[in-house]
């Protein structure tokens, strides 16, 4: 049981973090709080992916003695998995872009209604 917790607890931390963000997205009424929730959610997903790359005893995926040396047999197990890092580099950019567009839309809303509370905006509309 204790081993089970030790071997899984990092996933649980990220899931808790994700759920905090998720609650912010669907539970909060303020638009900026929703955006912050979105950011937390996405960052937690990044952490989750990165944690899958880890290998016990692995180091950075940069091959030592790269150029100018004799080609040596490279042991994959001694370097961490590079693929999740690459995926998350792409995902970070995607998420930053989403954040940018979200904030642009929030600015457009603020210009029109002078408030960021969803309920007040809805009152405005009717």
């Amino acid at each position: 049981m204790f081993d089970f917790i030790i071997s899984k607890y990092n996933y649980w931390i990220y899931i808790v973090l994700m759920m905090i963000g998720f609650y912010g997205m669907i539970g909060k009424k303020n638009l900026i709080k929703k955006v912050i929730g979105m950011n937390i959610f996405q960052t937690a997903i990044i952490l989750f992916f990165i944690s899958t790359a880890a290998k016990r005893g692995g180091t950075l995926p940069i091959i030592e003695h790269g150029h100018g040396h004799e080609m040596q047999a490279i042991e994959a197990a001694s370097y961490v998995n590079p693929l999740p890092h690459v995926l998350m580099l792409t995902a970070i950019v995607v998420m930053v872009s989403t954040l940018g567009v979200a904030l642009a839309i929030v600015i457009a809303i603020y210009k029109r209604y002078n408030t960021l509370e969803e309920e007040e905006i809805l009152k405005h509309k009717i």
Partner: peptide, 25 residues
Amino acid sequence: MPDWADPQSPASTHVSPRYIEKTLE
């Protein structure tokens, strides 16, 4: 799920080894 940081997990053994072993070549 495989344990955290397990070098034998599918994610570490299926596709990714080629990226490390063949990157220089």
